[in-house]
Every structure is written in structure tokens, then in C-alpha cells.
């Protein structure tokens, strides 16, 4: 097991290095930070622009490989370089990671818990009205892209604010209101008001996926021998289902949870951008538009690490939860 883990980690380290390097080279070759200076008035003299770009390690007159070496050297020391405006990338990303983390963890927990509940209930009464309803709804949800869902929610929320509540109950932009003077609870309520819509956007899709997944897992174990044994030794149906069937059916879902979390750290891009949360995903889109090579590279490095760490975590969780994997 230890040898397997070490080999896996080494493989991952190589993958992350290659992926991040490719992302840097691609970004450095395709994006053009020099164009940021072109439409400034008064136009800065070329020598100044060159000096600035060189200081930021963004000068396209320096050979690409030399820029890459400087960048890679910095990354090895834990320094991702500077953004196009000269601020350190590290500081910026640290703050943004917090924002993304808050958004994703709430959305993921809501989505997975509700999804598992819905899926398990649907499986227990297979082909009942609840099963049919949730199957239909999840098909519908899986056909709605995030950009449409988020915009529909915003439209509904503005309509509800105007016509139902008569005041701003749902806030559609940002993580909190600037310059709010309210007590502690005022701030909590304000944050919740901002949190509701993005969380719904993130969780609705997750509920659909998790419930389909959980339903199939549950159906597989419902007729299994160990559930029948549990019933035979005198457990009530409810107890046999929750203690034995649900617990076993949860194993794959838990591993899927870990994997989704890693993917969502940068996968919440659309949600963040549309709702104006200043997280990693939003910065990814912004940095591409502002030709910010160092930030793009840093975020892709983080994304690669997150995906691999998540897949490792889901493998380990699977091994820890499922005795058959441990034995084999």
C-alpha cells in the first residue's frame, strides 16, 4: 500500500509539473500583456513599457524559455510572481481561495446531502410518484446549463424582490454589502442574503447528479443478501435500510463527493463570475481578459493540484470505507 501510494504521488507530481508548465507556456505564448499599455493616454514611451514588462517577467522580447525558467524558479520557491498591475499573485490568490472555499463548501454540502436524501427515498419506493417526479426533474436540471440557471434565478429573484417582498431580500451581486453599518447579526443576515442564489445555482445541479447516483447505488444494495439477513435477524425495515443499505450505498457517493470538491475549486467559474464573487474562477476569466500570464498559470497549477488531490482523496476514502478494497 505504501509503495503504491508513493508511486501514485510521484506520478501526480510529474503530471502537475507538466500541466502547469504547459499552461504557463500556452498562456505566455498566446496572451499579450504589452497590449494593456497600448490604449493608455498619454501613451507611455516604449522603453518604459519594456522596463515594466521585464520587471514583471512578462516581456515578450525575452525568449519564452528564459521567462519560463524565471517563473519556474519562482514557483519552486513558492512565489507565483506578480500580476499585470504589479501586485503579488500569492496575496491575491490566498484571499480568493477563501472566497471560493466558502462558496463551494456550502453549495457542495447542500447539494450532496439533499441529493443523497432524494436518491435514497426515490430508490426505496422505486417507480412510485416521488421516484418518477425526481427522475423527471433531474433530467430537466441536467439539461439546463449553469449560465441559464444563474440568469433565470437572478430574474426570478429581482421579480420576487419587487413584487413579493417589496424590498431587497435576495442580493444578486458580491459576497457582502460594502460599508454596511449593522451589528454582527446584521452582517450575518447580509452574507446569507448574498449566499442564497449562488448556493442554489451550485447545488441544484449537484442534487440532480448525486440523487441519480445514490438512487442507482441504493437499488443495487436493496436486494443484496446482507439487507435480507438484517431483516431476517429481526431489524425493522427502516432500520435495515438506514443502518445497512444506506450506509453501504454511501461509499461510492462519499468518494464522488471528494472528487467533486476538487473539481469545483475552479469549476465554480461561471457561478462566481455571474454573481460577482471575487473567487478563483472569476479571476481566471478576468486574468485571461487582462493578459495576466502569471495569474493564469498560478490558477491552472492550483486547479491541477486540486483535481489530483481530490482523486487521491477519493481513492483513499474508498479504501478506508470499503473493506473489500482494503483486503484486495
Amino acid at each position: 500500500m505504501a509503495g503504491f501510494l508513493v508511486r501514485r504521488l510521484l506520478n501526480y507530481a510529474v503530471l502537475v509539473t507538466v500541466a502547469a508548465s504547459l499552461a504557463y507556456l500556452l498562456a505566455a505564448a498566446a496572451l499579450d500583456p504589452r497590449s494593456n499599455y497600448a490604449d493608455r493616454t498619454p501613451k507611455p514611451p516604449p522603453a518604459v513599457v519594456d522596463a515594466q514588462l521585464t520587471a514583471l517577467n512578462l516581456n515578450d522580447k525575452t525568449p519564452l524559455l528564459q521567462r519560463y525558467a524565471t517563473w519556474a524558479g519562482g514557483v519552486l520557491r513558492g512565489d507565483f510572481g506578480r500580476t499585470v498591475t504589479g501586485a503579488p499573485v500569492n496575496e491575491d490568490l490566498k484571499r480568493r481561495m477563501g472566497v471560493t472555499f466558502r462558496l463551494v463548501i456550502v453549495g457542495l454540502i447542500c447539494g450532496s446531502v439533499l441529493g443523497v436524501l432524494v436518491g435514497a427515498l426515490a430508490a426505496v419506493r422505486q417507480y412510485g410518484w416521488f421516484d418518477r417526479l425526481t427522475t423527471g426533474l433531474s433530467f430537466l436540471v441536467l439539461a439546463v446549463p449553469v449560465v441559464v440557471l444563474a440568469n433565470v434565478l437572478i430574474l426570478l429573484a429581482t421579480w420576487a424582490n419587487e413584487n413579493v417582498f417589496g424590498r431587497h431580500v435576495f442580493l444578486v451581486s458580491g459576497e457582502y454589502s460594502d460599508g454596511l453599518t449593522a451589528g454582527f447579526w446584521g452582517h450575518v443576515v447580509d452574507r446569507l442574503q448574498h449566499l442564497i442564489l449562488p448556493t442554489i445555482t451550485l447545488s441544484v445541479g449537484l442534487i440532480a447528479v448525486f440523487s441519480r447516483y445514490q438512487r442507482n447505488m441504493m437499488l443495487d444494495v436493496l436486494d443484496a443478501d446482507f439487507v435480507r439477513t438484517a431483516r431476517a435477524k429481526g431489524l425493522s425495515r427502516r432500520k435495515a435500510l438506514t443502518r445497512h443499505a444506506l450506509r453501504t450505498a454511501l461509499i461510492p457517493v462519499v468518494t464522488y463527493f471528494a472528487f467533486t470538491f476538487g473539481a469545483l475549486l475552479t469549476g465554480a467559474t461561471f457561478t462566481e463570475k455571474i454573481f460577482g464573487w471575487h473567487g478563483l474562477g472569476e479571476q481566471l476569466i478576468n486574468s485571461i481578459f487582462s493578459n495576466d500570464v502569471n495569474t493564469v498559470a498560478a490558477i491552472s497549477l492550483l486547479a491541477a493540484v486540486a483535481v489530483l488531490a481530490a482523486s487521491l482523496a477519493s481513492d483513499l476514502l474508498h479504501a478506508a470505507l470499503d473493506p473489500r478494497v482494503r483486503a484486495g
Binding site: 503530471l15 502537475v16 507538466v18 500541466a19 504547459l22 499552461a23 475552479t266 467559474t269 481566471l284 485571461i288 493564469v296 490558477i299 491552472s300 486547479a303 491541477a304 483535481v307 489530483l308
Partner: peptide, 9 residues
């Protein structure tokens, strides 16, 4: 490698 590289990026 392609799985790790963010496609969107």
C-alpha cells in the same frame, strides 16, 4: 494530462 489540464482554461 488532458484530464488534469483545465479544459476551460
Amino acid at each position: 494530462l488532458l484530464l488534469v489540464l483545465p479544459a476551460f482554461l
